[in-house]
Design a protein around this nucleic acid. Structure first.
Length: 883
DNA sequence: TTTGCGACTTGATAACATAGGC
DNA sequence: GCCTATGTTATCAAGTCGCAAA
């Protein structure tokens, strides 16, 4: 096996007490009733200093998934690694360079729509700022260099309470103060010229690079934005307290939190301690061994896997005819509220086809009923949901009935829902579905092509001369609202959206998209380049809210903000020690607000809880950290906290954690004198919390902790866990790390209906193989004695095989059994865990790409086509990249 | 200080496509 | 070559968070 088994018994480094891990284990919390009992029993510890599993509230010990492991210290990247980076990176880059010279690039698509778009784009392009600069990503900067000047004393504690030896790092030393443009001038290449794979304008500093300790950075390099019609452009630095027009709320409180805590940010620590490692990881002592030097130079560090090369080659391939390409590059950065684009051309949105009546009559009180097409359409929406869980929900039926009734009118023959029989419509729908299924491959293909033809022109936009995919160009069709959990509005009619509902956003000089429905017109056309949406309409269920049409995840615009997100999370690494220090100190603060902020931040950091905005009464009753109710947390002496609440999407969060005593005490204090439904953090909301976090680190918000902890967990587990072995074994390591992150983030999925059947089938297969194995062994014995093999089950004489051949067969069969057993284990482990969400949203793709490069794992074994496109910006990362 | 608006990101799952077993 | 398990993509709901107005 290529790896240490993560599930092994913990081994702590007893000698290095300060590095003793904090125990942090997230249970695979369950969806309402779907959690397997195993996961339910998982016990999580937050601050234990012992490696043993702790009994959960129900008295059971945690299982293998909850194993406690501790981690040794991570080391900053060795300076000796630095040298290899450029070379290997540049060779990769070389393979990635494409379409130099022009802004408008070649595309593989040349339909007339596209030509039309290009024309407009060219016109728009002429207005563009001609000197768009770009430079290479900070990835090129080795971590060791980025942390230059930072030192960290060895043997530092992991738990904030035991933190010591603060090493002050002048903010001026931080290379984050330096405009990226100057840091990477040697590699800069203009996006306009098409020479930069990234396409980032690194001169536009990342949010955290804009100001630190009040220093002006490269922000001034940014081109002036176009004035928004909506509201004045916010100051690019408005996220920083000192420039904010709004005073951070907490600074108003009796205790001057802000001033005291701001000093925290100036202290930056080197990562020779574990503070940048998520608590979850620090607590897991992976028995790291020989592969400690994983990140050190192996010859592979210069090697790109063949498949990876293939991928790169593909993206490099110039596309035909068109003057633009589907971009894999990133746009010049734009700050919040700043100009996001200069030219934008697109064809608007496509509408669902008008309703076609089927004429199937439903039954009311045993009699067939005539419905108008409008009434029939809504009745059909309801009828086809017969097999869903919504039909068991009275609220769903009530809401549907209220809306449908309005369409029926007061005097309609149908007077109540209970006497309605929608079966004829349901049966008709099933027949239609069956017909569709029965279509020949050719018919299906033709249908698909027809659809593609109709949609082609809406699929693409040209943003600053680059052809980009549009994400959701289809207007949502009418239907019944499928709110999650106990959403008060479930079942309501989501009415049809018309062009007159839609506001289009497009470049000033671009042709206004033709309204696809004759005789109708758009609600409004705007030319707002401070936003990225192409169109929006008001959500018919909640008219105060909007539905937007954005570019696809693979677009430069999204890639740009994705990268900024991860850079911000990476920056937290430099601050995390002091942040943890600060909140630990405040666990015992006399100021209750301060105490609540400290404990909330702790929970967000350690449990990856979401911020928890306030919700309206017309939304499902779910909570996040700031909105936790007293009843959601049970304090079990001496220091256990049992969390039980519905989080986003009404996914159940169940987790028992062991916390530091001051946290436990604080929680019991917050609970005292309150009823179960009262707010646990009554002096807190997300804006107060985030205002406070911004005092600690520019741009820091609650959600950054999730990204940070997810990515650092992956980075750490991969680097500690990967050993030599074949690709399949390495992929198992990756999945394991991915799974840990998914568990930390509570990303769940429903157990597939066929899970049980699949497992039994695999079990059967294993026993078949074992029988075969037995026979082979007998035959081998006989062959060795020169005897012929026994007859098979049908009584036929088997072929005479040499002992060598039989031995080979035995080993092949053993390998097959092992593989199935491994697959079964993985399947069982992952049956309630969704790996995709963290991969898409929380794991810095550069960690994955760099790891693949280091370990010769083809990147497409980890990222599918969509992810490869989404993370194009991360593909040329240096193999030595660490989060 | 609170509320609401606006613009995004994050999320589970339904629908669809495809690979691989028979 | 068919069928189905599995993987991928589309869908749209539900979060976060900044900002401005009340």
């Amino acid at each position: 096996m290529a790896v240490e088994t993560f599930g092994k018994a913990p081994t702590f480094d007893e000698d290095d007490e300060d590095n003793m891990p904090i125990v942090f284990k997230r249970s695979s919390a369950s969806r309402q009733n779907q959690l397997d009992s195993e996961a339910k029993q998982r016990l999580n510890k937050l601050s234990g200093r012992q490696g043993s599993d702790v009994c959960s509230a129900n008295g059971q010990t945690s299982n293998a998934q909850n194993r406690t492991t501790s981690l040794p210290k991570t080391s900053p990247m060795k300076s000796s690694q630095v040298g290899t980076q450029k070379a290997s990176n540049s060779s990769i880059q070389a393979s990635l360079v494409k379409s130099p010279g022009t802004t408008l690039k070649v595309s593989d698509s040349t339909d007339s729509q596209s030509r039309h778009l290009v024309k407009a784009a060219v016109k728009e392009e002429n207005d563009r700022h001609p000197t768009n600069e770009s430079s290479d990503s900070e990835d090129d900067k080795p971590l060791s260099f980025r942390l230059k000047g930072k030192s960290n004393p060895p043997g530092k504690g992991l738990v904030p309470t035991v933190l010591k030896n603060k090493v002050e790092k002048s903010s001026a030393d931080s290379d984050d103060e330096i405009p990226l443009s100057s840091k990477f001038h040697m590699k800069s290449s203009s996006r306009v010229s098409g020479g930069n794979q990234h396409g980032f304008d690194e001169k536009k500093p990342l949010i955290s690079k804009v100001h630190q300790n009040g220093l002006i950075s490269g922000d001034k390099l940014q081109k002036p934005g176009v004035i928004s019609s909506k509201r004045p452009l916010p100051n690019a630095d408005s996220h920083l307290p000192q420039f904010s027009s709004k005073k951070p709320k907490l600074s108003d409180s009796s205790t001057p939190l802000g001033s005291k805590l701001v000093s925290v940010k100036a202290k930056q620590e080197v990562d020779d301690n574990d503070d940048h490692i998520p608590i979850s990881q620090r607590m897991k002592k992976v028995a790291v061994s020989a592969n400690k030097s994983l990140s050190s130079k192996k010859t592979v560090s210069k090697v790109v896997s063949s498949s990876m090369k293939k991928t790169f080659k593909k993206s490099k391939k110039p596309v035909k005819k068109s003057k633009y390409v589907k971009s894999t590059k990133l746009l010049p950065s734009s700050g919040d509220g700043q100009k996001k684009w200069t030219s934008l051309v697109h064809n608007g949105v496509i509408f669902p086809p008008p309703y076609q009546t089927h004429g199937v009559k439903m039954i009311y009180k045993g009699k067939l009923v005539d419905l108008t097409p409008e009434q029939e359409e809504v009745a059909t929406m309801f009828a086809v949901m017969k097999d869903t869980d919504y039909m068991q929900k009275p609220r769903f039926k009530e809401n549907f009935w209220n809306d449908w009734r309005k369409l029926l009118g007061k005097n309609h023959v149908i007077q109540n829902l209970d006497d309605c029989d929608f079966t004829p419509i349901y049966d008709w729908y099933q027949t239609e579905k069956e017909k569709k299924k029965q279509m020949t491959t050719e018919e299906k293909k033709a249908l698909k092509e027809e659809k593609m033809k109709q949609e082609e022109k809406y699929m693409w936009a040209i943003l600053d001369g680059v052809k980009e995919k549009v994400g959701n160009f289809r207007v949502e069709p009418p239907g019944l609202f499928r709110g999650r959990g106990e959403h008060p509005k479930m079942g309501k009619l989501k009415r049809r959206i018309h062009p007159s509902d839609i506001t289009i956003n497009i470049g000033k000089d671009a042709p206004i998209p033709e309204c696809p429905i004759p005789g109708e017109r758009w609600k409004e056309v705007r030319h707002d380049n401070t936003v990225t949406w192409l169109a929006f309409w008001n959500d018919p269920i909640n008219p105060k809210e909007f539905k937007y049409v954005f570019l696809a995840a693979s677009s430069s615009l999204k890639g740009q903000s994705d990268k900024e997100k991860y850079e911000k999370a990476r920056k937290l690494k430099d601050y995390i020690k002091n942040i943890r220090n600060a909140y630990t100190k405040d666990f015992t603060s006399k100021d209750p607000t301060r105490r609540q902020i400290a404990v909330a931040t702790y929970l967000i950091d350690k449990l990856a809880l979401r911020a928890g905005n306030e919700k309206d009464d017309d939304e499902a009753d779910t909570v996040g950290c700031c909105t936790l109710k007293v009843e959601n947390v049970k304090a079990v002496p001496p220091n256990l906290l049992e969390f039980n609440f519905l989080g986003k999407d009404s996914i159940k969060y169940e987790n028992t954690v062991e916390v530091e005593l001051p946290v436990f005490k604080a929680i019991t204090q917050f609970q005292s004198g309150k009823s179960g439904t009262d707010d646990l953090f009554d002096k807190l909301d997300t804006s107060k919390l985030n205002a406070h976090l911004k005092d600690l680190m520019p741009g820091l918000t609650a959600k950054v902790f999730r990204t940070y902890n997810a990515s650092i967990t992956l980075d750490d587990m991969l680097n500690r866990g990967t050993k030599d072995g074949d690709v399949a074994e390495k992929i198992v390591i990756y999945q394991h790390a991915n799974k840990e992150v998914a568990i930390i983030c509570n990303h769940q999925r429903t157990v597939s209906k066929s899970h049980g059947a699949q497992m039994s089938r695999l079990n059967e297969k294993i026993s078949e193989l074992r029988d075969i194995l037995k026979e082979l062994k007998i035959d081998l014995d006989r062959a060795k004695k020169g005897k012929p093999p026994l007859k098979d089950a049908d009584g036929k004489q088997k072929r005479n095989l040499t002992p060598e051949v039989l031995e080979k067969k035995i080993s092949q069969t053993n390998a097959k059994i092992e593989k199935i057993e491994r697959d079964m284990q993985t399947k069982e482990d992952l049956k309630t865990v969704a790996l995709g969400t963290s991969k898409i949203n929380y794991l810095d793709p550069r960690i994955t790409v760099a790891w693949c490069k280091r370990h010769e794992v083809p990147i497409e074994k980890i990222f599918n086509k969509s992810l490869l496109a989404k993370f194009a910006w991360a593909m040329d990362v240096d193999p030595d990249f660490r989060f």
